[in-house]
Simulated scan of single mutants.
Amino acid sequence: MLKPVETAVARFSMVMGGLVLVLMMLQVVVDVFMRAFLGAGFPATPDLVGKYYMVAVSVLPLALTELKRRHIEATIFTQKLTGAPLKAVLLFGFLVFGAVLAVLLYGSFGEAMRQMDRGAYIEAGTMRFITWPSYWILPFSFGLALIVIAIRIIEVLTGQFRDGDHDPLDQVDAMREDA
């Protein structure tokens, strides 16, 4: 029932993350080329990279990392748990993560609204470089991650959550074999 939502979030996160990386790479290459051969770079490249691209690259994958269960976990005390105690620990962890995401979403949404209302920009040389749209990357990313956490909470409560035991060293070995 919730798999289509997970799939949509995963695809969107991967496509947007890849698109942002490609755009950033192309802009930096064009900027370096223009500086080397024309004596002047692409206008506002450092500002665009710092205010838009790097923010998106940093937080857009947040939902995807939870979908793939790639967050860092300290399982030394929980690795032997099964049944109701494991379910309680998982539920507690997801609830705490959801609460943190909700606070981040609330705060970043408020900041995005303030920046949009004032029409935030920076002076880049002789031009005004609009920055207020970049403030919407954070609440959007936190919102996607919160959707994933809500799905996880529902899965735990309904008994559908399966967190397979995975050893990171096995994953590294599998990557080496594929290469």
Rank of each mutant, 00 (worst) to 15 (best):
149 I>R: 10
107 G>K: 14
179 A>M: 06
146 L>C: 02
132 W>V: 06
135 Y>L: 08
146 L>D: 00
84 A>C: 09
91 L>I: 03
30 V>T: 05
36 A>C: 11
148 V>S: 06
141 S>C: 09
135 Y>Q: 10
154 I>F: 14
7 T>H: 04
104 L>C: 07
172 V>G: 09
8 A>G: 04
62 L>V: 06
30 V>F: 04
118 R>D: 14
152 R>D: 12
169 L>H: 07
145 A>R: 05
163 D>K: 15
174 A>D: 11
32 V>W: 04
134 S>K: 03
75 T>I: 14
40 A>H: 09
32 V>E: 02
8 A>N: 01
97 F>S: 12
59 V>F: 15
127 M>G: 00
157 L>K: 04
75 T>F: 03
87 K>L: 05
155 E>M: 07
3 K>A: 08
159 G>F: 09
66 E>H: 15
76 I>F: 12
86 L>K: 15
37 F>M: 06
57 V>Q: 09
117 D>N: 12
36 A>F: 05
124 A>V: 06
79 Q>I: 10
137 I>E: 00
16 M>G: 03
59 V>Q: 13
68 K>G: 11
58 S>T: 12
124 A>N: 10
178 D>G: 03
113 M>H: 13
10 A>C: 07
144 L>P: 10
66 E>W: 08
11 R>Y: 13
175 M>A: 15
2 L>N: 14
54 M>Y: 00
91 L>S: 10
79 Q>Y: 11
25 M>P: 06
138 L>S: 15
152 R>P: 08
94 F>T: 04
104 L>F: 12
113 M>K: 14
140 F>M: 14
31 D>A: 02
174 A>H: 05
137 I>M: 04
104 L>I: 00
169 L>K: 14
77 F>S: 13
167 D>M: 11
3 K>P: 00
157 L>P: 01
6 E>A: 11
161 F>S: 13
160 Q>M: 10
170 D>T: 11
